[in-house]
Amino acid sequence: MLEVRNISKSFGGLRAVDNASLDVSAGAIVSLIGPNGAGKTTLFTIIAGFQKPDEGRVRFEGRDITGLPAHTICRLGLVRTFQVVQPFGRLTVRENIAVGAHLRHADRADALENAEAVARRVGMGAMLDQPATSLTVAGRKRLELARALATEPSLLLLDEVMAGLNPTEIDEIVPVIRSIRDDGVTILLIEHVMRAVMSLSEHAYVLNNGAIIASGPPRAVAADPQVVEAYLGHGAAKRIAASETAHA
């Protein structure tokens, strides 16, 4: 469904994304993990059309979407959320979600009705008339998800929707994400919460210094020495292995 091929992007001397490729097949939940500053969000912004890559192509449902404007890509069914939530502050939850719903529903009443349905789906049914500014962090993350969902996408790019949530809130949102997939929406997510990555996704890519260094089932990837070193520093994998043998 999504094919990312050899994407590179530099900012000045910094190579933020370096020849990265990944695939997401229809119906899957795929995770993109990696240390802070690895280039995950940059890769997302390129896929969603917010930035143009220096090199490489992005294909979505067989169509080359590289360099298309963000709103066109959204219309094709690929929508992103923002890591730093960007609500329409002075609008209510209902109005916020309706902006997304308007993409497929021209009529105002129709869009508002759809917004309500989406809000209930993500557990925001009781907050419909609250202004977005009054929401908690967890509420804002959900709103971000709801608005994206209201555009009726076939592929959803979630950028750290669980960051800043407490364990209870995470346990609440994991089934919501799973149910979205079960309704036929393919999901690519950036996530630091490994528990969620493990329980949600069938496949994970690890990005480090802009390059994909590992991919596979999340458990295998997490055990990969290269991945451990990316997170904990050079030689960490060896030291951990040594200490484990010593304890055994």
Partner: peptide, 8 residues
Amino acid sequence: DSARALGV
């Protein structure tokens, strides 16, 4: 930016 992301 949010508006653009939502297809506006």
